[in-house]
Every structure is written in C-alpha cells, then in structure tokens.
C-alpha cells in the first residue's frame, strides 16, 4: 500500500493539469481548418489557374485568413497576461513551437490575404493602393499559391506539434499528432468546401474528402499503435485514451461519427447509391472538433510524466 499526502494546492495544476479549457481546442480546430482551406484552395489554383472562378475555391481563399483570425481571438482569450501578447514578437525561441507559430503568422497573413485579394479583385474597386498591389502581384498568383500550400501545411502541422513537444503530458508526446491534426484539418476544409460548392462540384469534393478521411484514419491508427506499443507513462496514456474516461467520446464521436460513417456515406454518394446530404460534411466537422477537445482534455487529465 502507498499513501501520499501532499499540501500542494495550486489550482489548474493539481490534482491534474487543467490549464487549457475550451479556447485552445477551438483554436487548434480553427487553425487546422484555416490551414486546410489554404492548402486546398492554393493547391487547386496551382493545379488549374481557372479554379479561381470556382465558388468553393473562392470562398476558401477568403475564409482561410478570416477563420484563422477567429482562432487567434480564442488564443488571445486563453492568454493569462493578455496585454503582453506582443511579447511573442520580441523574441524568436528556436526550441519553442509556439514561437514558430507566432512568427509563421507573419508570413501567413500577407500571402493568404494577397491571394484572397487577387481572387476577389472585381469587388475591390474602392481603394487605389490595393488595386495597384493586386496589379503587381496578380501575375505571380501561382508563386503565391506555392508559398500558401506550404504555409497552410505548416499551420496545420503546428496545431499538433504545439501539443506533441510536451513530453510531460504523455498522451500528447507523439510526433504523429502533427500529421493527424494536419490531415484532420484538410479533411475538415474539404467538408466545408463540399458544403459551399456548386452542385456540379459535389462529386469532386466528395472524392477529395473521402481520400483525406481515409488518410486521417491511417494517421489515427498510427497514433494509437505508437502509444499502445510504447512503454511506461506513454503506453498508459494511450490506454487511458482508448479505454478510459474519454474512450466513449473518442470511439463514438471521433472514430465512428467523424471518420467511419462519413467515409461510408461519401463512398455511397460517389457510387450514386444514396443522395448527397449536408449532414455528411457536418459529421466530419463535428468529428474534427471533437478530436481536438478529446486530445486536449484527455492529455491534461492523464497523470504527469512518470
């Protein structure tokens, strides 16, 4: 028998870590979605320049910086010393993912906004300076798109790496998490574009989303296998996720409703066995959102590295 008595009090640290509430999972979701929208829209522009006429691509270029800004708002809400937020830009700490993320935003905004401005240039006729900038940058749209695909990937991966460098929280300490969150972000973006797009494009986006959900399923499997076959706290943390307090949420909400059911329905839709329903992309979005909440909460509530 072991009995431990401690007079440690600190709230949000004891009895288990509880420092990040709804803001961080929401930010991770919105960040992943913004990254995914940027990857898909820029990728499609790269693939076919005429894509800038496509409704879903147009909306995606615009939504990406808007959604990331909403995400940033939640990030700001999470900071305990909000008036010091600018301190992120007085240092670059090579070993801190959060510092990388903060600086990455400085590349994200000019490039993603520029792309959106070029795509929506017909609506911007009220400010000569912007028109002039568009005129200069428009011939380089493809190059901007190349940069954007990489920035989008960087933002998507970052949302996972942010958690995975904390080995003190054994559940998060998996490098697969970066790819899982990236793929989940792109698949959510595809789901959003599936909702927005014209009925003629539904088939294309259904196929894209199917492919991405399937890849995400592989990443989720690797994440689980990596944890279960690990040792000590890392093994126990993964077992806790898949069979502990959060197990029902993880299996039902993320795996079943977020991956298996949408993949199944989308396959049937592509095969013309069932009619398209906006419920399917909605399930993908719910699954992706719940993934962030489950991972953040389960990672915090499991014991500290031992």
């Amino acid at each position: 028998m072991t009995e431990i008595i401690s007079n440690k009090l600190n709230p949000y640290v004891y009895p288990n870590l509880d420092i990040w509430h709804y803001e961080i999972p929401l930010y991770l979701f919105l960040g992943g979605l913004a990254g995914g929208l940027l990857i898909l829209s820029s990728g499609m522009i790269l693939f076919k320049k005429e894509s800038i006429e496509n409704k879903a691509v147009r909306w995606a270029t615009l939504l990406s910086p808007v959604i990331l800004s909403i995400g940033m708002l939640f990030l700001l809400l999470d900071l305990e010393f909000k008036i010091h937020f600018w301190r992120f830009y007085t240092a670059f700490i090579f070993t801190s993912p959060m510092s990388w993320g903060a600086w990455m935003l400085l590349i994200f905004y000019p490039f993603s906004v520029m792309q959106a401005l070029i795509v929506f240039k017909d609506y911007i006729n009220f400010y000569p300076f912007i028109l002039k900038t568009i005129k200069i940058t428009e011939p380089h749209l493809q190059k901007i798109a190349v940069v954007n695909v990489h920035i989008g990937t960087g933002i998507g991966v970052y949302t996972g790496v942010l958690l995975s460098t904390f080995y003190a929280r054994p559940l998060w300490n998996s490098s697969v998490l970066g790819f899982l969150f990236l793929l989940s972000g792109i698949s959510t973006a595809a789901a959003v574009m599936l909702i927005i797009c014209n009925s003629g494009d539904k088939r294309t986006f259904l196929k894209v989303d199917m492919y991405l959900i399937s890849l995400e399923g592989f990443a989720a499997t690797l994440f689980i296998i990596g944890g279960v076959t690990s040792a000590g706290a890392f093994h126990d943390a993964m077992v806790y996720l898949i069979s502990g307090t959060y197990a029902a949420w993880f299996w039902v909400l993320f795996i079943l409703c977020g991956l298996i059911i949408p993949l199944l329905l989308e396959t049937l839709e592509v095969l013309n066995k069932v009619r398209y329903s906006p419920l399917v992309p909605l399930l993908v979005i719910i699954g992706s959102l719940s993934l962030r909440f489950i991972i953040v909460n389960a990672g915090q509530s499991f014991s500290t590295f031992y």
Partner: peptide
C-alpha cells in the same frame, strides 16, 4: 514577469508540475 504572456506552455512542459499561474 515582463516577458511572460501567460500562455502556460511552461506549465504543460514541466514534468514536476512545479509552476502555476
């Protein structure tokens, strides 16, 4: 304290749970 934003990364990173906000 003048540089701290209260982002709590240090608290998540500490394997000894020695910090608080």
């Amino acid at each position: 304290r003048n540089l701290c934003t209260g982002c709590k990364a240090c608290i998540a990173a500490c394997p000894y749970d020695a910090r608080y906000i």
